[in-house]
Amino acid sequence: MNERDREHSSPQRRKQVALFVTCLADLFRPSVAFASIKLLERAGCEVSVPLQQTCCGQPAYNSGNYEEAVPLAQQVITMLADADYVVAPSGSCAGMICHHYPRLLEGEWRERALELAAKTFELTVFLNDIAHIKPPGKKPSAAIPSVAYHDGCAGLRELDIREQPRQLLRDLCGIEVSELQQREVCCGFGGTFCAKMPEISGKMVDDKLNDIMATGADVLAGGDLGCLLNIAGRARRQGKKIEVRHIAELLQQDRDTPAIGEGK
C-alpha cells in the first residue's frame, strides 16, 4: 500500500508509528528518543516502542562481518513487520534499514526487507514530509539561538535529507540555519573508522569543527548521534564552546538537559 492509499483507506485513523530508538539514543541520549515520541505525538501519531530492540547491525555490517549483521537485520525485520510506519531519529540507521538490509539479505528475507524499507523513515523526513507536523500555536518564548546544522552522510546520500531539518527548524522554532561552507563533507565518524584510524578521523573532525565555529553559531544540531558524539567530543577536547544537540531536542525546545558532552 502506498502512502496515498493508506491515507484514503482510513482517513480518521491516526498514524501508527513504531519508534526505532537506535542504540546510541538508547544508551547515550534517551532525551532524543523521548523528544522524538513527543514530536510524533504532536504530529498526530500514535507511537509505540517495540521493547525487543537492540541494534540495527550497522557496526557488524560496516566492519565487513555480514554473518553477524544478517541475524540482527532479520531480528529487526521480524520485530517491525506489523508496524504501519517505522521512524528512527538517525539517518544512518534509517539508511541501514532502507538501503543496506535489502543488499545484505537474499530471497524471501530480501522481500521482507524491501517491505520494511518502504515504511521506514528518518525522523525529520517523517515529521516534515509524511506527518506534516504543524507549528505550535504560540511563538517560542525562549531566546532563539543561532544554529548550525551538520548533515550526516547517510542522510544526505542514502535518503536525500537536505531541506527537511531546515524546514522544521524554521517552522517549529523560527530558526534559520547558519550554513557550513562544506555541508557535504563527512565529519570523520564513520562508525568503527574513528577508532580504527583515529589520526585521520581527528583531522577530519577538526576540519568540520573549524567550519562549524566559523559560522558563529551557538548551537550545532544534527540528525545523527554518531556524528554529534564525535564532534562534541572533539570540541570538548579542543576547548571549543559549542552546544551540540540532536535536532529532536531543539524541535521539542528541550535545552534544559545538558548538551552532548556537557556536565551538570
Binding site: 539514543a25 547515550f28 534517551p30 516502542v49 578521523s201 581527528g202 567530543g233 577536547r237
Partner: peptide
C-alpha cells in the same frame, strides 16, 4: 575506547538507558 579518546573526549551517557526509563 583508547582509539576514540586519543583524539576526542568521550561524552558520558545522560543517565539510565532509554529502555530502562521507558
Amino acid at each position: 575506547a583508547s582509539g576514540w579518546t586519543s583524539q576526542r573526549d568521550f561524552p558520558a551517557p545522560q543517565g539510565k538507558t532509554f529502555m530502562q526509563q521507558y
